[in-house]
């Protein structure tokens, strides 16, 4: 069953055509890496999947994003179920996007807002059961002892694990991670990627993660989708992504060795 289904998605930022006719399917239980140079549109694509950005307007039924069978947006308009869909989707940000002045536990409980009646959520009356769940989620990421601390006192790697606990609290059916390890040290990166991998393998939750480091993508993700200038450049098993494709993707072609002397020769 496909949990993410994107059809003919286009997005312009003023003149810049950030996404060009993107169509993509992700099946249940997959772990997919989104690769691509900066500005290739991988973060933009991920934000469309959670309805944080709306695509270009289009003709009826032409472009749409469906997550877990629910429509998130169609033809450049959010669907009325966009909040329900966000509720089932865990989203991890590069800058963690936790509420700094709240405790770790409160931040995890934010993951329960969508499933909590309004009078309870607005007065902060989470049920005992929800608090137990939040502690269990923190335990899963190894931060149960930090529950009462303020998020701003935690290191970057710990904060990212709190963000994952928040996604677990949502009982998310899929997790979208937007460069989750781009601002972390190698050890924290490894821990975060292993937690994501563990969630993917044990619960069968589909994970889509944008990454800058190709070796992390190869190590943790069986499938790689690469974007270049807003188009899908490669989509396949990670073993199939060879050096030639990578060089073409990142445009790191070996420079012609005589280019510099030539320039020098001209001026001389």
């Amino acid at each position: 069953m496909s949990v993410i289904s994107v059809t003919k998605l286009n997005k312009h930022f003023n003149e810049n055509h950030a996404l060009k006719d993107i169509s993509l399917e992700v099946q249940q239980g997959e772990m997919v890496a989104l690769l691509g140079p900066s500005g290739s549109g991988k973060s933009t694509l991920l934000r469309h999947l959670n309805g944080l950005v709306c695509a270009d307007k289009s003709q009826a039924g032409l472009s749409q994003v469906k997550v877990l069978g629910n429509r998130v947006q169609q033809d450049g308009r959010f669907s009325p179920q966009v909040r329900a869909s966000r509720g089932q989707t865990g989203y991890i940000f590069q800058q963690f996007n936790l509420v700094n002045r709240l405790s770790v536990l409160d931040n995890v409980l934010i993951g329960a807002l969508n499933a909590t009646p309004l009078w309870r959520s607005l007065t902060g009356r989470f049920s005992l059961n929800q608090k137990r769940q939040a502690l269990a989620a923190l335990d899963r990421v190894g931060l149960a002892d930090f529950a009462q601390q303020r998020v701003s006192n935690l290191s970057g790697g710990q904060q990212q694990r709190v963000a994952i606990a928040r996604a677990l609290m949502q009982q998310a059916k899929i997790i979208l991670a937007d460069e989750p390890i781009a601002s972390l040290d190698p050890e924290s990166s490894r821990i975060v990627m292993e937690i994501l991998q563990g969630i993917n393998q044990q619960e069968g939750i589909a994970v889509v993660v944008t990454l800058h480091q190709v070796d992390y993508a190869r190590r943790y993700c069986p499938r790689i989708v690469a974007l270049k200038q807003g188009e899908i450049f490669f989509d396949g098993a990670s073993e199939q992504l060879d050096q030639v494709t990578l060089d073409a993707l990142y445009g790191s072609k070996p420079q012609a060795p005589h280019s510099v002397p030539q320039l020098w020769a001209k001026t001389a």
Partner: peptide, 18 residues
């Protein structure tokens, strides 16, 4: 930080409170 709350499916009032 607000976007982080929004991404969990919270509504506008919850975004403000949290």
């Amino acid at each position: 930080q607000v976007e982080g709350v929004r991404a969990t499916g919270a509504n506008k009032l919850e975004e403000i409170v949290y």
